[in-house]
Design a protein around this nucleic acid. Sequence first.
DNA 1: CAGCAGGTTAACCATGTGTTCAGCCTCGGC
DNA 2: GCCGAGGCTGAACACATGGTTAACCTGCTG
Lengths: 245, 245
Amino acid sequence: MVNLLNMRSTTSGGSSNRGPVPPEDLTTRARIRDTAIRLFGRAGFGVGVRAIATEAGVSPALVVHHFGSKDGLREECDRYVLRVVREAKSAAVETEESGAHLLSMLAMVGDYEPTAAYIIRSLAVGGDLANQFFDQMARDAEEYLAAGVEAGIIPPSRNPAARARFLTLTGVGMLLLETNLRGPDADIGEVFRDFAAWSTLPSLEVYTEGLFANRTFLDSYLAAFPVEGDQPATGDGDDQGNGAG
Amino acid sequence: MVNLLNMRSTTSGGSSNRGPVPPEDLTTRARIRDTAIRLFGRAGFGVGVRAIATEAGVSPALVVHHFGSKDGLREECDRYVLRVVREAKSAAVETEESGAHLLSMLAMVGDYEPTAAYIIRSLAVGGDLANQFFDQMARDAEEYLAAGVEAGIIPPSRNPAARARFLTLTGVGMLLLETNLRGPDADIGEVFRDFAAWSTLPSLEVYTEGLFANRTFLDSYLAAFPVEGDQPATGDGDDQGNGAG
DNA sequence: CAGCAGGTTAACCATGTGTTCAGCCTCGGC
DNA sequence: GCCGAGGCTGAACACATGGTTAACCTGCTG
C-alpha cells in the first residue's frame, strides 16, 4: 500500500496482450516452463512432474531431460519469473515515471496472473526467489519513499531503510495472508481486486490520519531507545537519511 | 502492531512453566498429538506419519489407529491448538485486562513456541484453522480499537470493522512473511524477537506520524467514493461505529 | 545413401507415502 | 484360570513420486 492512488487510470484501460510472452509457437522447453509456472502457481510446488508434463502435452521424461530435475525446473521458473518482473517493472517505469507501487502490481495482475500466483506461492514457502523478490521491492519502496519525502508529501523517517522494509513487509505480507486465507482454489486476480476494493479506505485512513491520536507511544519509545538522527517531526534536521539495515 | 507498547513488562518477567500442557506423563495419544504439533510446526505439514511416530517413540500404525488417518491427526492438532490459544487468551485477559495484542503474543512465544510455529505454518497453507484464528484476532482487534477510540487515544474510523481487519491482516501478514523469508530452519522465537526489535520504530513512526503529510489522497478517495458516516476527523459525528464487513 | 545429434518417449527403478492387516501383549472382569 | 478388549506393533500393500535407461524418430550434414 505504498504510494497508494499514485497511478493513472489503472482499473480501466486496455488489458490487451501485454503478457510476459507471446502466446504460442514457443519452443517445447519454454512451453514446459510456462505450464510449470502456471501449475506451480495454481496448486503449489507439490505438483508432480507428471502433471506438468501431461498439461504441457509432453512425456514426464522430457521435462527432466530439459531441466535435469524438478529442482532444476523450479530454478528456471524462478529465474524466468524474476526476469519477467524486472522487465515489466522497467517498462512500467518508462511509461508512467515511477508510478504506483503495490497497487499498480495489483492492476497488472490481470495480465500477469500466473506470474503473480507463482510469486505468491513462492513467498508462501520462502527460499531464494522469495527473498530476492522481496529485497527488490523493499529497495524500490525506499526509493519511492525518498522521492515522496523530497517532494514533501511523505514525512521523513528516522530510519528510512527500516521504514521501507516495514511497509513492504506489511503490504506484501497482507497480500500473501489474504491469498492464503481465501483458500488454494480462489484465483489470484479476483482476490487482489476484492482486496484492493475493501482495503483502500482503511489503508488511506491509517496512513493519513495515523492510528495513535497522540505522540506518547512514539515519544516514550524514543526516550527509551534514542535515535542518532534526532526528531524529524520538527523538520529542522541537517542531513536526513541515515540508511541502516 | 495494534496497541503497541500497551503491555506491562513483557520482555522481562518470569518465563516459568506456563506452557500449554504439563510436561510429561501424558497419555500416548496426547503425546502423539503434541509431537505432531511440534513436528508440523517445525517442518510443515509435509512431514510423514513415520517421522511423527518415530519422534513420539511409537509405531506408525498407532497414530492412524488413534486418529483414523493423517488428516484426522491434523484436525485434532487444529482443534487442540485453537483450544490452547483460547485458554491462553482468556488467562491473559484475566491477568492484564485487555493488555497487549500482537506484541504480547510475541512475548508469549517463548512459552508457546510449538503452538506459534504451528499457527504460522497453518496460516502459510490456509485452511479452516487459519481462518478461524484470523477471524478471532480480527474481532479482538476491533474490540481493542473501539476501546482505544473510546479512550481517545485512537482516532475513529469510517469503517471500524474494515480497519480492524486491515490492521490484523497487516500485522499477522508481516509476521508470516518475515517467518517465511527467514527460511524453514529459523526458530520462530528468534525470528519474532528480531522482528519486534527492528520493526518497533518504523511501526510507531507510521502509526503516529502517518505516511502521507497531507490529506489529498484520502480526500480525493472520499470524494470519489463517499462514505455514509461522513468525516470523523472533525470529531463532531453523532453516532460512530457503522460496523460493516 | 550413411551417420549422427538432439528431441522425445515407454518402461522401469528406487523410494517414500498413507494405510491395512494379522497378531502380539497386557490388563481387568468373570 | 480364562477370555476378551484395547493399546500397540511389524510387515506388508497400493500408490505416487522423482529419476534413469534404452530406444525411437526426425531432421540435418556429409
